[in-house]
Structures are given as C-alpha cells and as structure tokens.
Design a binder for these strands. Structure first.
Lengths: 128, 128
DNA sequence: CTGGATCCGGTACGATACTG
DNA sequence: CAGTATCGTACCGGATCCAG
C-alpha cells in the first residue's frame, strides 16, 4: 500500500503525461546517462553528484514503472543491479534532444538579453 | 519586497532549463492556447477550468520574464490585457509538439499494457 | 552494494476574499 | 476586467539512519 501508483489521473493534454514521466530534477539526467550505456546503481549515483540513494531509487522505480528502463538484478553477493533503456525508453531520446537544444538556445538568449538591466539594443532587427 | 528572480541557478543540462521554463501544470496549456490566437486574461482563465487568478498571474509573469509571451495592456476602462506569443515564444511550439506526440504514444502504450486503467477501486474480494 | 524508513523544509499549487 | 492578499495543502526533493 505504500507504493500507490498515482498515474491514474487524466491529463488535459498529453504534454502533461510526458512531463510527468520525464520531468523532475533527475529523470532527464538518468535517461541521458543511459543513452549510451547501461549503468549500475552506484555508477549512476557517482555521475549525479548530490543525489541521495533514496531519490535515485525513487526516480529509477518510476522510470521502470513507466516502462522506460529495465532493471536487471544479478543474484550475487554483493548484489549487482544494472539499469538500461528499454526499446520504448529509447523513443524519448529525440524528445530529450529537442528539450536540450531549445534549452541551449534559451540560455544563450538569456545571457545576451541581459537580465540585470533593460539593455535592449537594436539587435532584434534580426528577427526570424 | 522585491521579486526574487530565481532563474540564476546553473543547470547540469539545458534540459533542466527548458523544463523550468515550460514545465509545471499550467504553462504548457497557456502556450498551447496562445499558439493560434492572442487571448485576454479572462479568456485564458475560462479555457483552463479550475485555475485560480493568482496561479494564472504567476504563470503568465514567469512566461513573460522568460521572454516567451508578450503582455499588452490597453489603458481603458474597464481594463483590457492581451497575451500573445513572442517570436521567441513561437520557437517552443515544436518542442511542445514533440512532448505532446510522445505523450500520446505513452498513453496509448499504457492502456494496451493493461497496467493502469480506470481501475481505481479494486473489487472487494481482494481486500480481506 | 543496493536500497528502504523516517523526518523535514521549500515550493508548487489551490480557494477565497478583496481592490483599482 | 485584471489582477493582489492571505491562508492553507500536497508533494517533491534532501539528510540521515537502518537493513538484506
């Protein structure tokens, strides 16, 4: 009962569903790391400095429930668990790419627009 | 009390920036509505049943600060304010489209996998 | 090594009343 | 009409300790 699946809300728009699945602070980074290689729990944690094991577990479980990643447990001592993208999980990569690309444009624009002042030069003549 | 601009955190990945800008519960819907037409405050509110004016104001301000939408005030009585996408704001539409498309695929897959349906309250035989 | 349990603070989100 | 003010709630994300 502790593990309520709370994905049964209906969305006003599929965008909401997507954000619910790949959104949050860590999920994009996890997916990004699994893009090229399968990784172990500790491997993921090392590459995401600052995440607590609890959070990492939670994010991984949610991604697993959504069917995006595969959790493979090796019955060994000490335990070993490998995470990898499922075939369906790979279909989000282009979406992630689009988000990343637009984010770069946005950050670029943020810098040149000068947040700390109304520095509006006649630079927007290059619209479009 | 000055309005703290909290967008100056540095991101581990541009994806985070994008999610920060277009993420949340309402921002995609707002952008989606402004895709084809400019709308007034009340117009937006009517199409988003359940949003409080406070929330709508907040989301609109954030989108405006990010440079995605334009807020045009007509000095009339009664007051009239129109919101529209900026040229830069229109560049997110493809991203939004990608999110929407993948979300549809995801929701489709969710249904056929039989895992999450409208099966909110299981039958009582499982309780015990 | 891979997590689960517990507590806790910040913030996203919401309902309602009021104002220029 | 287009918001602001105030209060309240839920949940995300973090720290720490504990367990198989």
């Amino acid at each position: 009962m502790a593990n309520e699946v709370k994905q049964n809300k209906h969305y006003q728009c599929p965008v909401e569903a997507t954000l619910n699945v790949i959104g949050g602070k860590w999920k994009p980074i996890i997916l990004w790391q699994l893009k090229t290689e399968k990784l172990r729990f500790s491997g993921l944690q090392q590459n995401m400095q600052g995440i607590s094991p609890k959070m990492l577990t939670k994010q991984l479980r949610e991604l697993e429930d959504a069917g995006l990643i595969l959790r493979k447990v090796y019955p060994e001592i000490p335990p070993r668990v490998e995470y990898s993208l499922t075939e369906f999980g790979k279909t989000v990569l282009p979406v992630l790419d689009a988000l990343c690309e637009w984010g770069s444009k946005y950050l670029e624009r943020e810098c040149s627009s000068g947040k700390s002042g109304e520095l509006k030069t006649a630079d927007f003549s290059t619209l479009q």
